[in-house]
Each structure stands twice: as C-alpha cells, then as structure tokens.
Write a protein that binds this DNA or RNA. Structure first.
Lengths: 230, 230
DNA sequence: TTCCGATGTTGATCTACATCAAACCATAAC
DNA sequence: GTTATGGTTTGATGTAGATCAACATCGGAA
C-alpha cells in the first residue's frame, strides 16, 4: 500500500534534475540520500577530498571557494535553495578543486553517486538532464572567464548588478538585494572588498545607483548598462 | 557482406569518446558525420552561432578564443589531433560564447547532434563517457580560473612549462616545444606577448630555462617548480 | 640572393588594481 | 547603556602587468 512521500522525497521531486521522475525512481534515489544540517560556517567538502556524490541545497546559502596556498581565497560560486553542486566530480576520478562552505544556517541533501549512475543506466532522459546540467555549468564558467579576462572591475560590477535584467521587458528602474555581504560579492567578482566599495561609490556619484546597505536601487537600467567606463 | 571501414569510421573508432563502440554504432555515427578541410585561419564556428553538433580534430591545430567588443581576443584553449570541442552546447539551447579558428592547415570531422542524442538513448555507457568528457572540461576550466585569479604571471608560465611533468617519474631535465607561437601561448596564459617574453627572459637569467625559438630546455625541473616568485 | 610580412624583443611609461592602515558603523551580547 | 565583533568605508602608497613605440629576427616567396 502506498505511503505518503517523505520530506526528502518531496524535496527531491522538485529539484530540476529529478523533476517529473516517476515516484518509484524518486523513492529509490531518496533511499540513498542523506540530509545534512549545516550551521553557518560548516565546510561541506574540501579541496582534495574524494567525491562520493553531490549536494542539493534545501535552504540556506553555500559558497564555493578556491584557496591559494598563502591562505587567500576566491569565491567562484554562490548558491541558494534548489541549486546543486559537486556533480562533475562523480564522473571522473579526481579530487575536488574547490571548497564548499555554508554562509548561512543551511539544510542540504547528499545524493550518493551510485544511485546517480544507476539512474543514468535506467533512464536516458535522466542522463540527458545530467548532461544539460553540466553543460550549463560549463557555459556559466566560460562566461566568468570572459569577465575575468576581458572586462574591467567596473564592467564586472555593472554586469553583476544587471544580471537579472538581461533580455527586454525589464522596467527602467529596479531594486536589487545583494545575496551576500559585500566582501563575498567582491571576491565573486574577483575584486578586493575595498575596490568594490570604491566602484559602487563611483556609480553613486554618477547618479547611476543608490546604495542602502545591501539594497541597491537602479533608477535607470539602460543608462547603467551603457555606462562605458569611468 | 561486411565492407572495409571508411577513413571516417576508422578515425571515429579511435576518438576517446567512441572507442570500443561496436562497429555498427560507429557506422551509424559516421553516416551523420562530415569531414571538413580547413586551411590555417579558417573560422569553424563563431560566437553567437547555434550549435548543430561537435567537432573532432583529425590533424592540425585549433584555437578557441573569446573576443571583446573592442576587437581584442583571448585564447581559452588550444587543441590538436584527437581532441574535440563544442560538445556542451549540444545539450542546451544557447549560442556559442567562443570562436574556433584553425591555426594550422587542419582536417576535422563534424558529428551531428541528432546522432549523439540517439546514441545516448541507445547506450548508457556512451552517456557516461559523454558525462565524463564534460566533467573533464569543467575541471580544467576551473583550474584555469584558479590560475587566472590566484596566480601571478610568472607562476602561470612555470605551470605551463611543467604541465606535462606533474606526477613523479619525470627526469630532472626535459625539453619542451611550444605548441604555438609565443603570442598565442601568452594569450592562453592571459598575458601580453611582451610580458610573456620578459617572463621567459627572467627565467633564463635565473638559469632555470634555456630558450631556443620554440624549444625550451629545463635543466632542473624541480628547481623550476620551486622557483617561488620574482 | 633580396625583400616582405609575421613574429619576437626591448625600453619607457602608464594605470588599474592591490595592499596596508585606520576609522567608522551596525548589530547583538552583556 | 557599554563593549565586542563583523562588516564597510576612506585614504595613502605600492606594484604587476598593460600599453605604446621602436627595433630585431626569421622564414618564405620572387
């Protein structure tokens, strides 16, 4: 007789990767999934670790960072609820390059790699989704490389502020909320905290943005977009 | 009655992605594959193009570049025989970010995306290889990001010179050949040609390398590896 | 051989950004 | 309230690497 879905199953069923999978599949996956409660500051995986599966964020926030031997670190990704990370390393025998750390009290699921492999063998549609997921990662990372190598700090900041208003159909004025503290955002943009602060200041003086703590109002999106340099 | 394999089939059968696939599969794939003769300087695909499949290099050399609006360009990848590119975009509906151009007279194969999808549906082992391939890409790109953001120009150059002598079992002295002209290598390392030239010069003065055109001799690999800084 | 375009080197100068240091501000614990 | 404590700003100064410009070298075509 059918039983009501467990919380884990319910959540898995809504993760993009697993959406619309038959109930039985979800149950099988859930049986190889463990929930993790991670208070802010928890290191979920560390550079050099071997990969046993991938993580999905139920709630909270996670940063992926690269660490230099000299201790400095660089944020490569910021992720929130519904997003997952660590998939790629399941398919190659390599240790992690990045370290993942919660920057907010969080709850995550860890899905074992064996069940992922089994699911790939069972259902080509699942394999295709996995492929699409990795492809998106690659695409985004490539566009980050483009930012780092071809754009100035100012341009990266502007790009970040406008990242949700790409296509048309955006109102001319918007307000956005920084997803993390300014030091973390700065690092994500490959800037120092100080430089990020000064860049925002410049944009304020030019009347292109209004900053209020983590809240930033952009009175004229189009003007900001076309603000080419100092 | 069986016929001898066509050149295209023979080559496909040796591409890592297709290796050990049954003869019949190779034949099906080959039927959706076209050969391309591309003299040096041919643009194989351009930023903004839509993706219809992926490319495999039979012989020659190809560079993948990012182009800034102002015309400057940045080499993100250099590839030779047996290597392939453009797989990721088959799985998502996005235009290319990079431009691919031959930097030597080359011959390539173009494999149609439809046959790749069919093969994924037919054989989960194929899907897994595809996943592993994309994962490697992602891993390498991440390690490039690490270089660009966390390492100095000097460190990137040294890393490049030593990239084939990572593990142990390497002799203490080696000679390497730059795979392309110095301008291209410099761009791959996110340096200007001038800065690359000066960096090599510094290493020469320190007695760590001997440069002879495109040929570079490293008398003591270990000493170069531990050469930390200016 | 001579010429020519592509490739490499060298020097002088500039600049975007980092670094260091100090002050400042908010929130929460006491 | 006071005091910590993380986050943020501001200023002074330093520097890795870019840019601009001239020159040197090389390899192929005539």
């Amino acid at each position: 007789m059918p039983r009501p879905p467990l919380p884990t199953e319910k959540f898995l069923a809504n993760v993009p990767l697993f959406r619309e999978l038959p109930r039985a599949d979800i149950q099988r996956i859930a049986s190889k999934t463990v929930a993790i409660d991670a208070p802010r500051g928890t290191v979920l995986l560390r550079r050099g670790d071997v990969c046993r599966g991938f993580h999905v964020i139920v709630f909270g926030q996670v940063k992926l960072v690269l660490q230099s031997p000299r201790g400095s670190e660089k944020v490569v990704e910021l992720m929130g609820p519904g997003q997952s990370f660590g998939e790629a390393l399941m398919f190659i025998e390599e240790p992690y390059l990045v370290t993942a750390e919660t920057i907010d009290d969080s709850k995550l699921l860890h899905v074992d790699r064996e069940i992922v492999f089994a699911e790939i063998d069972r259902d080509p549609r699942f394999a295709r989704r996995m492929l699409a997921g990795l492809s998106w990662r690659l695409h985004h990372l490539m566009s980050d490389v483009e930012s780092y190598t071809l754009r100035s700090g100012m341009q990266r900041v502007i790009g970040y502020l406008l990242r949700d208003s790409v296509g048309n159909g955006t109102p001319s004025a918007i307000t956005i909320n920084l997803e993390a503290n300014k030091g973390v955002i700065a690092s994500r943009l490959n800037l120092t905290q100080e430089h990020f602060s000064r860049t925002l200041h410049q944009l304020m003086e030019a009347g292109l943005i209004e900053v209020n703590g983590r809240e930033i109002r952009i009175p004229d999106v189009e003007r900001l977009r076309t603000h080419d340099s100092d």
